[in-house]
Design a protein around this nucleic acid. Structure first.
Lengths: 127, 127
DNA sequence: ATAAATTTGCAAATGACTTGCAAAAATGCC
DNA sequence: GGCATTTTTGCAAGTCATTTGCAAATTTAT
């Protein structure tokens, strides 16, 4: 593990919400080139330390967001994203494993990944 | 409705799978500038004639895919995407409306949109 | 029709992400 | 630890989907 990777992983682990490359490369704890950030986000995901999804929001455009994944505990989380304040709310671990298996049997395909998230306006921004 | 919009809507309506801007602007039935394609895809979605999601696949990169939405029938579809042959399989109308409502009540937010799709290898490519 | 409002094509810009390459850091081996 | 080998990093330039300014062309309203 290089310095950059350790630092990145540390930040992902501590973050309560998914973060994008642009958010990370602005962080003083990550004084690395953006190419390094991108390359290592790929690396961490590939190694099973992180997972990601692409989200588009009007204010921040289209970006990939990463979150920490404790290796072994296979269950990833799903998120709600507030378009106003750009906060993410954790909806808890994925509860669709059964459904996925049913679909695999029904259609005969193999699911390697699924993407699920919500977009809207959070409770605070609503009022 | 302008010529471009009618032609685009027609293509979307006839397409059995979601299509991206690049696929559309290659189509001889759509002899329009790419800017026009993009602008009108936005227009059609805004008017409720289409819906879209962003999907990344190794071979085709990151693109937004559009599909026709008959106005009134509120139920959109979810899709499986094969990474090998780049085909989409229709999983049927969204069955998560109830779950969405429950989440809205539990968390107090308003869901304006949800994204859900599967990625993997289809039955034909598997063998 | 004719004027006013909207849309189109063109070409340049944007922004996230990627890549080639030489220097720097991590790793393997003694 | 010290040296050779492999991998990673920074830099700068490149990609690629998508967007935008603006004048010309098409729609729409009257």
């Amino acid at each position: 593990m290089t310095k950059a990777r350790k630092a990145l992983l540390e930040l992902l682990k501590e973050s309560k919400e998914p973060v994008s490359a642009s958010m990370l490369s602005g962080d003083p704890a990550l004084p690395f080139d953006q190419a390094t950030i991108y390359r290592n986000l790929h690396y961490l995901e590939e190694q099973g330390f992180a997972e990601s999804f692409i989200l588009h929001c009007t204010e921040h455009g289209t970006e990939r967001y990463y979150s920490y994944l404790s290796r072994g505990e296979g269950v990833h989380h799903h998120w709600f994203h507030c378009e106003k304040c750009h906060k993410f709310i954790d909806l808890g671990g994925c509860a669709y494993q059964e459904q996925m298996k049913e679909w695999e049997q029904k259609y005969g395909f193999i699911i390697t990944e699924h993407t699920f998230f919500l977009t809207g306006i959070c409770a605070s921004c609503k009022s």
